[in-house]
């Protein structure tokens, strides 16, 4: 059984249909990369999974059980199982680093504060920010903020971590510290769905590549296939373009 299965998923912004029947699967412990040209609908896929955009058709199944995004209880369940890290970090500006990481586990999940704080300290050390507990987001660099955002998502103990172009807003010299954090997570066996334009990184960590174009998945498979011997013309064209860069 697939850990996550997305079946014929469609979604729209008003009259504009941006997902036209997306299909892909994710196994436990897998790091899948969602790639494709800008505007192809990658972010929308993650947003629909998190219940931030409404699907207009299709199905999302976790461990074989379908999520019904029209029911609040199902949306809550989806957010229990998955956590997302955004391109712009979106740390709460009014909270310290530690509070950003602990607020949801304590206030939303009702776990004991002491226990959550200990875990938060461990997670912050893991992303290399053990000394920044009491800093506020606007005192940190973009790379540091993004690593806090990853720690915040991990503190929710998600089964699947969604990362949406988490290095795109960063200065080039800060990209590697964040990629290192993700490498560590992949090595730990975290199940991840990563939207990324860092093709070298995708080839290195991804166990599966899903390529999208114009609201559809054009090809999916192991990175060697997608980058080495793409089967479809559209995939070949896109790979040719990015390899020339």
């Amino acid at each position: 059984m697939h850990h996550l299965q997305v079946k014929d998923l469609s979604s729209a912004y008003g009259p504009l249909t941006v997902l036209k029947g997306v299909n892909f699967t994710l196994a436990k412990g897998e790091t899948a990369a969602l790639i494709g040209p800008s505007g192809s609908g990658k972010s929308t896929v993650l947003r629909v999974l998190m219940g931030l955009n409404k699907p207009t058709g299709g199905e999302v199944l976790i461990d074989g059980a379908a999520l019904d995004y029209s029911r609040p209880a199902s949306v809550r369940a989806a957010r229990e199982r998955m956590a997302i890290v955004f391109q712009q970090y979106n740390l709460f500006q009014n909270m310290s680093v530690l509070r950003n990481v602990t607020i949801a586990p304590v206030k939303i999940k009702g776990r004991p504060r002491k226990e959550v704080e200990a875990e938060a300290e461990r997670l912050l050390s893991k992303v290399g920010l053990a000394d920044k507990h009491h800093a506020y987001p606007d005192e940190l660099s973009g790379g540091q903020q993004q690593r806090v955002a990853i720690a915040r998502a991990l503190a929710l103990r998600p089964q699947i971590l969604l990362l949406d172009e988490v290095t795109s807003a960063l200065d080039p010299e800060l990209v590697n510290e964040v990629l290192d954090t993700i490498r560590g997570l992949a090595a730990d066996g975290m199940t991840m769905l990563i939207v990324s334009h860092e093709m070298a990184f995708v080839r290195e960590v991804a166990t599966k590549v899903v390529m999208m174009d114009e609201g559809l998945v054009v090809e999916q498979g192991p990175p060697e296939q997608i980058f080495g011997a793409p089967k479809t013309d559209r995939a070949r064209e896109f790979v040719g373009k990015i390899l020339r860069h």
């Binding site: 998190m50 219940g51 955004f86 979106n90 709460f92 949801a104 206030k107 939303i108």
Partner: peptide
Amino acid sequence: QQIEAARAMNFSRWQTLMNV
């Protein structure tokens, strides 16, 4: 984005209001 970050972590509308 601040509101979406909260909603994605299962904050209710009221919790989002009071905390963010």
